[in-house]
């Protein structure tokens, strides 16, 4: 099973075992990783599953579609590496993925 490491804004790390085919957001939810809210349940409607994909991993993660780009643009604490984790599917190629979490999903 692919492993994913989530790093909270305060540096606390959570390494979880993810299921292939689920989203990175769902892997965090299943393992009670704090820092992801996922209000819309994975339908790219809320931008509260926002995370920063580690630079080294960016080339291996398929790019966002237009809907995701739109939602991310005005999310809180955006950086160039920002993604909606519900839109990234876990594959064997992502074993070891590192995702950092923003200070807050819902406010400045």
């Amino acid at each position: 099973m692919p492993k994913i490491k989530f790093i909270e804004a305060d540096g606390k790390e959570h390494e979880v075992e993810a299921q292939e085919g689920q989203s990175v957001m769902q892997a965090a939810m299943d393992n009670l990783v704090p820092g992801i809210v996922a209000e819309c349940g994975g339908f790219a409607s809320c931008a509260t599953c926002h995370g920063y994909v580690d630079e080294a991993w960016l080339p291996k993660v398929p790019p966002p579609d237009a809907a995701e780009e739109g939602m991310i643009a005005c999310a809180y604490h955006v950086r160039p590496t920002s993604r909606l984790t519900c839109q990234i599917t876990v594959t064997p190629a992502l074993d070891g993925l590192v995702v950092r979490l923003p200070l807050s999903q819902t406010s400045e």
């Binding site: 931008a47 809907a67 780009e69 739109g70 939602m71 005005c74």
Partner: peptide, 8 residues
């Protein structure tokens, strides 16, 4: 139908 506008 304008998700980019929603967050703003």
């Amino acid at each position: 139908g304008r998700p980019a506008e929603f967050m703003a």
